[in-house]
Design a binder for these strands. Structure first.
Lengths: 200, 200
DNA sequence: TGTACATCAGTGAACGCGCGTTCACTGATGTAC
DNA sequence: TGTACATCAGTGAACGCGCGTTCACTGATGTAC
């Protein structure tokens, strides 16, 4: 019996799988993920429609993989950036977010769209990821009182503002983003500071 | 030459048109607006597929009408509620919003989805509407200094939080919404107050 | 080392289906005079 | 008032098209011994 496929073979398959996910992100930026067809994605990835099934059972499974793998990694990186500069965590997070928008707009479009999109499953998966990010921000900004309810809900609101700002940035020419960035940092900081001031 | 159709005939047509828009909202709540088909919507509205063209050139035109007419009316009402209780404008706005979620979840789902959805045109139309709402909130909360930049951008952030909260509410059982409502009012108020405090 | 067998990603043909759109028509209603 | 004509929402038939999915097959690669 064959117990393990060769490493090389596995890597080849992984490349095609990644190409499918990237193709889906690319096309979703134009028509939205819900409007994508399996054949359309396979075509963009350069494989036959029937080969799609070697990687995913259907488009929903591909979307789930996109959130768990691609989006999950990106969001964890965002949290790491904030934690790495605890004294300026908000600024670091905002910078990392806007850098992400510039570097991979297709992924960011997918994220902000599916966060409030048509698929309840995608919404639930993304909510989990964003809650994690909010907790990280909360810890970075205020590690000393981990149980403060208001402070955590303020961090969640701050993350909401972060994603709405990303959505705005995606629709704006790069030139106009500087003022928005300053406003965003101000608003997120104001929320987090007010929550600390409101502590018992 | 016929200059005006009779009032009765016009009203009949208006009813079918409204039925088409309502059918689209109903179906979009499940599959998303981008996933809707013209035949599907016509079927739900109880007319033949070809009759659709008597009212809209295509689905995009129907979506535009939904935003301009149905959503526009709802958002203007939200602003009116806030203006009517200027001393508690934020609370009034939040209450009106959550009442809207309970009364017409299909419309609210459409709003929060298309605000960051796949159609650039829908996003642009909704951004205009939300900017208007932010200006109304700004005027209600702080009519005395109409030129304060920070105060206006704080109002815009507050409106962002309002819509994100609506999106959350749509995915929550009604029972769990009370705590979220309190947090939302706190966060919006904190933003608006901080902006006033930060004024030169 | 050689040989027989197992695995599995990729494929092309084929299917039935629902889609968007066109077209010419119907019939109710309104207008002209 | 009666009659001839115009308007227009609604319709069913028909079209070509791309879709998701199944199936049996290929061929490269790995494994057993």
């Amino acid at each position: 019996m064959v117990l393990r496929a060769s490493l090389e073979k596995k890597e080849e398959k992984e490349k095609v799988r990644a190409a499918l996910m990237r193709a889906a992100l690319h096309l979703a930026a134009a028509h939205g993920f819900a409007g994508l067809g399996l054949r359309e994605v396979a075509r963009e990835a350069g494989i036959a429609p029937t080969s799609f099934y070697r990687h995913f059972a259907d488009m929903e499974e591909l979307g789930t993989a996109l959130i768990r793998e691609v989006a999950g990694r990106e969001l964890r990186e965002l949290g790491d950036r904030a934690m790495a500069r605890r004294e300026t965590a908000v600024g670091a997070l905002v910078e990392a977010m806007l850098a992400g928008v510039a570097k991979d707009p297709e992924l960011m479009r997918f994220l902000v769209a599916e966060r409030t999109g048509a698929s309840a499953q995608f919404r639930a998966l993304l909510r989990t990821e964003l809650t994690t990010l909010a907790r990280t921000l909360h810890a970075a900004v205020d590690g000393r009182s981990p149980g403060a309810d208001r402070s955590l809900s303020a961090a969640e609101s701050a993350v909401s503002l972060l994603f709405d700002a990303a959505a705005d940035a995606l629709d704006q020419p790069k030139a106009g983003r500087a003022a928005a960035q300053e406003s965003l940092i101000w608003a997120m900081t104001a929320l987090l500071m007010a929550a600390q001031g409101a502590k018992p």
